[in-house]
Structure formats: structure tokens, C-alpha cells
Nucleic acid binder design. Sequence first.
DNA 1: AACTTGGTTGAATCAGCAA
DNA 2: TTTGCTGATTCAACCAAGT
Lengths: 376, 376
Amino acid sequence: MASVLPLAGLRETGQSRIWLDTIIKGDCVAALEALPDHSVDAIFADPPYNLQLGGTLHRPDQSVVDAVDDEWDQFASFEVYDAFTRAWLLACRRVLKPTGTLWVIGSYHNIFRVGAILQDLNFWILNDIVWRKTNPMPNFKGRRFQNAHETMIWAAPNAKAKGYTFNYDAMKAANDDVQMRSDWLFPICSGGERLKGEDGKKVHPTQKPEALLARVIMASTKPGDIVLDPFFGSGTTGAVAKRLGRHFVGIEREQAYIDAASERIAAVEPLGKAVLTVMTGKKAEARVAFNVLVETGLVKPGQVLTDARRRWSAIVRADGTVASGGDAGSIHRLGAKVQGLDTCNGWTFWHFDDGKTLRPIDELRSIVRSDLAKMD
Amino acid sequence: MASVLPLAGLRETGQSRIWLDTIIKGDCVAALEALPDHSVDAIFADPPYNLQLGGTLHRPDQSVVDAVDDEWDQFASFEVYDAFTRAWLLACRRVLKPTGTLWVIGSYHNIFRVGAILQDLNFWILNDIVWRKTNPMPNFKGRRFQNAHETMIWAAPNAKAKGYTFNYDAMKAANDDVQMRSDWLFPICSGGERLKGEDGKKVHPTQKPEALLARVIMASTKPGDIVLDPFFGSGTTGAVAKRLGRHFVGIEREQAYIDAASERIAAVEPLGKAVLTVMTGKKAEARVAFNVLVETGLVKPGQVLTDARRRWSAIVRADGTVASGGDAGSIHRLGAKVQGLDTCNGWTFWHFDDGKTLRPIDELRSIVRSDLAKMD
DNA sequence: AACTTGGTTGAATCAGCAA
DNA sequence: TTTGCTGATTCAACCAAGT
């Protein structure tokens, strides 16, 4: 795992997927062109932020702030940065499956340009996510608010994209049974998690916390999916993907980062399958048609169903339709019809009398489902 | 105060400032051109967001969401929206003093375009500020994260601008003596603050909370300063400016909004000078979800939790859910399930073994909370 | 008077599949 | 590509009415 691939001939390998769980050395766009069309399930991109720093920044105690002034973060102008951004985004879209999604993280220096270009390229923004830092760097000059967050954009490859993965139920269950919001709170990467060289200095200036990547990957991919990171850096995406039972592909130009990331990922122990099971809701359950209930005798032809307050009633017919007054149809159609609505979930609308109380027919469906589960 | 000015001849009035504390009726750009150069200290702009909505959206209870589908939010394309944005931003800069600053609020639908154009026009971004909503609208279809914030950009008129107002010490004092961060927590505008017509319906679909404007104005202006709002709407900027001892100028096209704003502002009582020195904001106790413990490593995926008497056990999964036997769910749901109850407080029910004794996971939450106590 | 219950609402780019 | 069917899906706050 985490071997480094030479660039030549990758695309021709087609479905062999020898590039899985590797770091490709090279320029982002060139390396992306070597990968097959529609081959990855998700992309997490942490591109250069194009920080426009003036002189050296000193803390109040006169110590010097170790700023991000690497060569790879220098762009001559917004135009150059925009062209760079368009190029790698287009290359990413070709590689992304139609059902895949793209994440980009940035700060106010670059994220507005990235977001506007995403829209110009007809990507479809699903959310902007705010990473609130528990321990951001203070503003030393006292001339601005403390810059305490970064922004991520989560986007589908086009406006019509359907079927992307969003583990809604897992996110909700993990968040004390309320929807996960667009503002996330995490510490910055520090302490033992922060990669340091033999000189004790940080290996990469903008290493992202694993917790952030973990939520991204848990939310938008399934176990076994492939996650691409075109600006691999210290390999946080790869380390978290491996730990969470996903495959990764990294692209990185600098050998020092590749070395550090390879070593880091090699030490990661994947979690077991049982732990990685993703919480799913009703949507993922086997479909059970109403007539199965009739056929199995859980509901009898001629039986009367009502809504929860007995305002409306319907009679069950042998073919699995229900009838009320002059109307008849599926449990959904008739439920909508009697209420005067466009749609209705008949499973939760119609109830049966168990001798004591009214219970939704959805409970009978659960019985069928649990019977089916035993037959696996 | 809050009289409505006709548009003609304003610019010629020069320094007479008869336009102070008035609402100018007209198109944003045209009205701005009627104001003198370098005449206002701050601008707060809440432009149309260019929402691109599909069909009608229903809540789970089948009620219809009252969407923002007003004519003024309709743009033919991104190009048209961008041209509109460039025009009003340029007009704003001419009117803004060299020492003044500009605020723009938006959502992911438009804020990236606004930010990129600001940079293209050589505005200088000072901060992006996240307004975290305490009570955002849910995501009804479960296909995205709950869109729980909006973004503001705070910018100086050019890269070299010096001497802008930032009341650093007031912000810090108001924030329990730590620097004010770039993420702010406020409820949406509702209840008594929300302007309603005689029909009981909201006057304006996107009225902003006064608390938000109060922090903006307190942070970036001095008493007696002039605050311009080129998209005045229901007049929140004017009402707060007046209350805080600042002057305002509003621009608005629709007479209904002008009427409501005028009446609203007339009823505002300015605060006394002494009161205007320091303001404090209240804080809510941080809510910590279980997955935060997993993400921060206080609880590990695969770790076993039990109840206080070890009668039941559960395994922690990477997505922040817990599993036991064939069941899985949130700590609360699973706790209820294994006990055969309807509800359960998972925080006090589930325990971990610290090597000596069983301790409720609630104690781990306390640890996180004390780390977060410095924040909203 | 204090509390409970039920209804309403908010800047929303909000479904998936099979025929 | 379009149509139609199945059936999944909400949180915090405010307010009015009932207990």
C-alpha cells in the first residue's frame, strides 16, 4: 500500500486499477490525465490557497510567524490562479464518476474564486461547509476578526447529477439524532497527529486534521469506494481513507511529501468491517409492495383501513389496491386522493385496528422485512 | 428621520447631507450615482442571492415551503448576475470613503461570485464571517447537510487601504476578553422582530436579525458615522444604525418595503451615549454530539461500551453510531432498543471502562465541553 | 399563573426508479 | 428523454389554545 507509481502508461491499464492505493508523482493535471474516465467515487482537494502575504509577520512577543510561503503557493495573478483552478477542476471531473462528488477546501484567499469557477463549469454545489477551528491562530495585529474557520465546497459534477452518496442517516445518528449541519467544529492538526521531520519541524505547512477528513469520507463515500486527492501533501486523505476501508489515489509533486505520506499510510491499520458498517435508513431497505401483505395474509381482502384519526376509511381488495367511496388505487394514490393532496405515503397514512389501537400498516411491512432478513 | 427622498439632484447637494437618514427610492446603481464621492463610512449590502429553485418543496408533513421566488431574485444567467454585481460594487466604492469598509452577505448561491468579483475589482478582503444560525430551516429531503449558515465578506475598498475602523477592543471585551472570531452565532429573524403586514404575512422574505447588524455596525463604525445599505429591504440596517447612534442611507426600489422600513425606523429610540460604549453577547452551552468523541479520538471505533452493570454492551462504529446484536443506531436509540424502552439518554446509559471502573460517556463529553467553553 | 400541546415557519439551487 | 409511481423526509423558536 501507498507505493509510488511512475506516471507513464497509467491510463492504458484500464480496469486493472494498479493505481489504487498509490501516490502518483507528478503535476496534478498531467497525472490526472493518466487516470481513466469516471473511475473515482469522491475527490477531496486541498489546492494552494494563493495566500497574498506582505512582509514577515511578528507576534506580540516579536517571534516570527512561520507563514505559508512555499513556492507552490505563489501565483502571479488571479488570472493565473483561475486558469490553474479551471484546469485541475476539469481534469478532476473527467476522472469522477457521474455519481461521485467533489470536495474543495480553502480560505477567503481562494475559495471564492474556486466556487465561482465551479459554478461556471456547471458543477452543482450541494453545500458549503464551514470548518470552525477550536484553536485557530490569533490575529496578532488586532486589525481584523480572528480568522477562525475555513470553507469547504461540496459539489456534484453537474446540475442534473443524481444518485450521489450521502450517508444521511449515519450523519444524523452520529449527531444525536438531528441533521448534521453545515458548520463543523474540529481542532487544527497538532500534537502527535502532526507529521514532523527529523529536525522537529512540521513536514507540511497545511496538514489537515484527520477528524475533518473522516467526516468528509464517512458522509460522502461507502466502504470500498475510491477517494482521489489531487494535492496529496502529507497524505491525510490517504491515511483516513485506508483507516475507514476506502481506497485512495494521491497525486503529489514533491518527493519529500510523498515519502512522509507513504510512511504514514503504511502505519495505518484499517478498521474492521463490522465497525465500518454504515447506518442506513428506510431508503436502503428492501422494497415490499403492499400486495405482499395481502398475499401473506397479514392484511386480508375486505379488511378496513383508516387514517390515524378514523377520518377516512378504505377497504382492501384482493389485488392489493384499496378502495374508498368511488375511488380506488394504490395505498399512496388513495391516501393522497382522500386528503386532497398530490402525494401521500400510504404506509404511514393508513392504519389497521389490532383490537386495541390503530397501528400504521408500515408496522406490518416491518414484519415482512424482518422475515426476509432471516432468509439471507 | 427615515423620510423618503426623490432621486433628482441629490449629488449636487454636495456636503449639505440632506440625504442622511433617508431612504432613496430607486434602482440601486442609479441611486448610488446620485450620492457624492467618498461620503459614507460603511456599507452593508444584502443583494439578491440568485437562488435557482426547482419546483415546490414540501415538508414531511406535506405543507409547502414558502420559497423566495420574488421577481427581484431572478437573473437570466451567472453572466447577468455578475454584471449586476460589478455595477453595484463599483458604484458603492465611489461613494465609500477611503477609510470605509464594505460588508456583503450571501449564501453559497451567490457569495463565491461576489467574493471573486470583489477581488477582481481590487477590493481587499479583510475577513469572511460566518453567520451560524441557531434555528435554520432543516433539509427536508435528507439529501444534503442542513444549510445552517450564511457568509459575509468584509472588505476595504482597495489593497492599500489604511485607517479603516475596527473596534478591536470593544469586540474583544464583548466576547469575554478573547478576540472576536470569524464565526458568529445568532438566531434568524422571527417572532416580534419580524415585520408583518396587516394580513399577518411577513413583509420581506429575507429580513435579517438586528443582532447581526448590531455586531457589524459596532465592529466597523464609530458613533456618528454614516452607514449605507444599497438593498434596504425592510430597513434592518437603518433601524440598528439609528439605535446605535449612527446615520444611515437606504436605497430601495419597492414602495411597500420603503413604507414598512420608514415606519419601523421612526419607532426606534436611539441608545444613550454611555450605553454605546460596550455591548456583550450571551452564550449558549455548547452541544456536543457523540461522533465528536469518535472524531476526536476520545472514543475509538471498535471500542465496547456497556451499561453501568454490564448487562448490555455495544460496539462503537466509525460513523458515530453504535451496534449491538443485530441492532444499530445512535447511542440514544440503541440504548432504548436494548432496554425495550421508547427513549434513553445514551450519554448516561452507556459507560466505558477506564481501566478501573465504568464511567458514563457523559464524562467524556464534559472534557470536550471544557475545551470548547471559550467559544459559542 | 404555570405548564403542556399542537400548529406554523424560516434565503432551499432537496428523490429514485422503471417503463 | 419524459412520465408516472412509490414512498421518504424536519429543527428550533414562537405563538395560541387548552389544562
